[in-house]
Design a protein around this nucleic acid. Structure first.
Length: 319
DNA sequence: AGCCAGGACGGAT
DNA sequence: ATCCGTCCTGGC
């Protein structure tokens, strides 16, 4: 589908703001949902608004047009958007990229950490970000289970080509994410044929859950951390790892490290100089060092590492 | 060919 | 509360 109607938005961010590493995270596996052009510094992304309206985002650094810190956004749609829909999309971008978060709270809380301050200087203004909605981020976390990045990538791609929608905007071809409805209507056997393995039945569980609970996102945002986590783990196929991922990325709890075997090794090495320290010990050390911002601190450490060593994606494919 | 890694579940303890 | 076998596929 071609999205040809364009609306421009200027979205201001609280300073400091790092455009590149807020919209684009080197540690994330690539998908056909987004494309970051490193030469032009333009980021393209598909999103859905209320499930049925397809939107293309073309984001660039507001700084470049001399209008201060933030994002210059071109919103592509099939036809003109209602002012209230446009305003909701605007709010979603602001929330997803944390434009109104004061990152200085994190910086001042860890200002005595000399080692971390080198990274903070390099990534100054980077936010935790997640443009996916809750259904989408839970699907991604499902495909991250029991898989190396290459497999996760293949699973995501198979699902997008089968249930997503190809879109074209600003001379870029991407896919939109699929809706719960698309998966609800698919058979488990068909899902299995896409090589998502045992996750086929869980993909349906997640889709059914969201198909039946329209307002769950709104409810979860107002819940305390542990209640929200318990709520998410009621979905079959969503355990602590997947729930944490959604809670940190989507619900933005900065005091949370989501350990998997890869970042466990990275953080173990960073703090203890060796890879084999157990998770609870790493977690305690992070807590002691960064307190309520340990999740944010680890985000900075990991993104910094992937910027310096892109081959880590390859390492993560193997062992 | 066989074996293993990677989260979550479900049943057993 | 904690442990174990199982799910599934790709890589060795």
């Amino acid at each position: 589908m071609k999205l040809e109607f364009v609306t421009d938005l200027i979205l201001k961010a609280i300073e400091p703001f790092n455009f590149r590493y807020t919209v684009y995270k080197p540690s994330h596996f690539p998908t056909k949902l987004e494309y970051y052009n490193k030469e032009t510094d333009v980021f393209y992304r598909s999103i859905r608004y209320n499930d049925d309206i397809l939107i293309g985002l073309e984001l660039s650094d507001l700084e470049k047009s001399g209008k201060g810190s933030g994002i210059y956004a071109k919103i592509y749609s099939k036809k003109e958007l209602d002012p209230s829909d446009l305003n909701n999309i605007r709010k979603r971008i602001i929330y997803s990229y944390g434009l109104e978060e004061n990152i200085n709270n994190f910086y001042s809380a860890v200002s005595n950490d000399i080692e971390l301050s080198r990274i903070i200087t390099a990534l100054n203004g980077m936010r935790n970000s997640c443009i996916e909605n809750l259904f989408e981020i839970l699907n991604i976390s499902l495909f991250l289970q029991n898989a190396n990045v290459r497999r996760s990538q293949n699973m995501m791609q198979a699902m997008l080509t089968n249930f997503g929608c190809p879109i074209k905007f600003g001379n870029i071809c991407l896919f939109s994410f699929y809706t719960p409805k698309a998966v609800v209507n698919a058979s488990i056997d068909y899902l299995r044929s896409l090589k998502i393995g045992y996750r086929a039945k869980y993909a349906k569980e997640i889709a059914n859950f969201f198909y039946d609970n329209n307002n769950i996102e709104y409810t979860l945002r107002s819940m305390p951390f542990n209640d929200a986590k318990k709520e998410l783990m009621k979905i079959k196929g969503i355990g602590p790892y997947s729930a944490n991922l959604a809670l940190f990325a989507y619900l933005k709890h900065p005091n949370l490290i989501n350990f998997d075997v890869w970042n466990k090794k990275i953080l173990s090495k960073y703090i203890f100089g060796r890879e084999d320290i157990n998770i609870s010990e790493i977690n305690n050390a992070c807590e002691a060092r960064w307190g309520d911002f340990k999740g944010y601190a680890c985000l900075y450490i990991i993104e910094d590492l992937f910027i310096q060593k892109p081959e880590l994606q390859y390492w993560r494919e193997r062992k």
